[in-house]
Design a protein around this nucleic acid. Structure first.
Lengths: 237, 237
DNA sequence: AGATCTATTATTTTCGCAAATTCCTTGCCG
DNA sequence: CGGCAAGGAATTTGCGAAAATAATAGATCT
């Protein structure tokens, strides 16, 4: 049905399992599949055009990443969202990423700095390219991706596979909440965000670990407050 | 073939998928399936007496937990081990668990203290029950489980699902290295370990967070050194 | 001999169907 | 009228066959 692209970058082969895993993950993170929605295998089968096996495999992985809940013999549901869960994800993310950031600042070489500056530039361009009104699908997706790449670049030189793995999972978990608020970002907020990221990058390349970690904490905390405010309005209780 | 017990505790139904996931995980952590060993589906099918579907599902979950590596269309292998990976797991575990421990000490109630004291007692009993010579299978497994339960109890009241989840995964990752050394524990080392755990528990119930975290760091670092020493002798380069 | 193409084999991945289990409805009895 | 059991529908789970892909061996050509 929508099996258009079969492999992505020429290297890794793309099995149906991997494809449906990524599609499902995107649809959960972007909110297309709402929290607590039961994921019936029949529906998913027709929706993604694959059989049971790849679906179950994808759902198992998603369960390990806490994006879906599973009860044996009763199927899968989209993991619920709440403000408490959001703050738990954000706080844990701060614990992980501030430590990773310190290590990256300590160990990062020229190549790390270059990647970071490039990611910052790409993000900044995308911020300025946005129209004034509310944002729509292709733009939010591009912004989301560049934002993610910036924060990944920031800690990429930390030297710990475990920290990078945890950071990635927490990014997905927090991205779910971010998606709601991204559409309503007013130009002023965008400039603030751009400035926050730039200050963060500058502290990192200046090798000022304390300042960088402080800015990162402030950045995530502020984003958390915005998301919490928006989340309250869109939900019942 | 070995589908003897179908559900364990009366509550959660035990699907074959879950069963083979736990069996596979145990065999990887305990070293029965050696690092880098290719996990051929045919072999596993006869070994665990299940079909393709539960196996693939289990392997997918194990991949998310970094116990197996997977390359598309080329199958699964047991995740490799190295001293660098061991220290990465230990250091990350310390980051996670010291933070979790501080929160548990801050928020833990009487019930938490009771569970902790009980876990310490069970662990201590098992340490003293051990024979003097080298340890064999049923004893190491019991010791492993009680040790794991003690450290789980320590942080159980931290209030963060993410921290508990990460701690669990890192426990599995480090347990792989611990298994090699457990058989060769001499009585003197056992008494030291028992004392370390007791001091840790006492600091926790005394709500002395700094001291408890210091002891935890010391405990894991010391264990790491032991494991690194043993690991070097058992491997080539 | 070395390299390249082709045929064969081994292995993974996917699908369809059957079995097991849960959920929902309906009818029965107290 | 309410609780409960039985039957049927819906759903998950598991197995083996079939399709797709990688690895291997053999043959042909330069």
């Amino acid at each position: 049905m929508l099996t258009a692209h079969c492999n992505r970058d020429g290297f890794g082969a793309m099995t149906l399992s991997e494809q449906v895993y990524q599609d499902l993950r995107r649809d959960i993170v972007s909110g297309v599949l709402e929290p607590r929605l039961p994921l019936r295998l029949d529906r998913l089968k027709t929706r993604y055009g694959v059989g049971f096996s790849p679906l179950r495999e994808a759902l198992s992985r998603l369960q390990s990443e806490r994006l879906v809940d599973a009860v044996a013999l009763r199927g899968f549901t989209v993991a619920p969202m709440s403000i408490d869960k959001m703050w738990d994800a954000i706080n844990t993310r701060l614990l992980i990423e501030t430590d990773a950031l310190r290590r990256a600042i300590d160990k990062g070489d020229d190549r790390w700095e270059a990647t970071l500056v490039a990611a910052m530039h790409a993000l900044s361009l995308q911020y300025r390219r946005l129209p004034d009104g509310p944002l729509k699908e292709p733009q939010t997706e591009a912004l989301r991706q560049r934002h993610q790449e910036f924060h990944a670049a920031l800690i990429s030189a930390c030297g710990s596979d475990w920290l990078l793995d945890f950071a990635e999972k927490l990014t997905l978990a927090t991205e779910r909440y971010r998606h709601t608020t991204m559409h309503r970002l007013i130009p002023e907020q965008r400039r603030d965000l751009d400035a926050e990221h730039r200050a963060l990058m500058e502290a990192a390349v200046a090798r000022d670990a304390d300042r960088a970690c402080g800015l990162l904490t402030e950045h995530y905390t502020l984003t958390g407050r915005h998301m919490a405010a928006q989340f309250g309005t869109g939900q019942a209780g």
